[in-house]
Amino acid sequence: MSMLYNRVSYYFWFVLLLTISSVSAKENLHIAVASNFKAPLEQLLSEAPFVDDIEITLSAGASGVLYSQIIHGAPFDMFFSADAKRPALLKQKELIIKGSIHTYATGVLAFWQPELDSKNNYIAIANPRSSPYGEAAKYYNEHTLKTDLSFVLAHNITQAFQFVDSANAGQGIVALASLKAAYQQQADAKYLAYKVIPADQHPAITQQVVVLKSTNNLASANKVLSYILSPSVQSEIAELGYLKVCSQC
């Protein structure tokens, strides 16, 4: 009699624990995001209406690294890349939900020279081979700037900013978003010593998002997608130092 009782109670607890773990109050979403957009994305998602309904985990990293992880089966639901190249490759490999590629932000370049008469001959840009910001900067230099300063290649656009910020490079072609974020943190006048490079003088720095085929939570992913692409959120993103995505223009 007691043996039967034990068995039943074991099964009862087992099933209960199982259901508790799966019956969560929230949906789960695992988002891979390029490092340079992690902070803005975190901020925006915390203000979203569905913040209490969806449990979001962000994994930030270099777009290339995240891409490699995805093609090797990493269980992400969405991928906010820093470029358009990798989402296109994912589409080619048929790893995305059909029609889910969208541009969530367009990068803006700025020529930044904190100290005007700096004798420092280094100009920092992101590596053109791996960063759309770097590629755009290289194009801009070849066609317009044509400087004879020595180029220093940062491994991403944020490091390009770091090189100039630490005064190791006298000037740099950096993301406007970095300058705005830095000024937000520390109202130092040096973060205002930049000139925005007009968008027509370099290839567009389109940052695109995809929903991955391997997602278990398409509904939540779509919620996030529509939120990010909504006009109010898009103007917020523009404020942070990006070009406004004009779906109407």
Binding site: A62, G64, V65, Y67, S68, K85, L89, Y122, A124, N127, R129, S130, V152, L153, A154, H155, Q159, F163, A169
Partner: peptide, 26 residues
Amino acid sequence: VLMIGGNIPGETQVVSIALYDHVEAL
């Protein structure tokens, strides 16, 4: 080296950086 090198061939681009470059550039 990634933090302080600046990825300059012949000056600071060591093999590990070159490798990383290739991977990033697919």
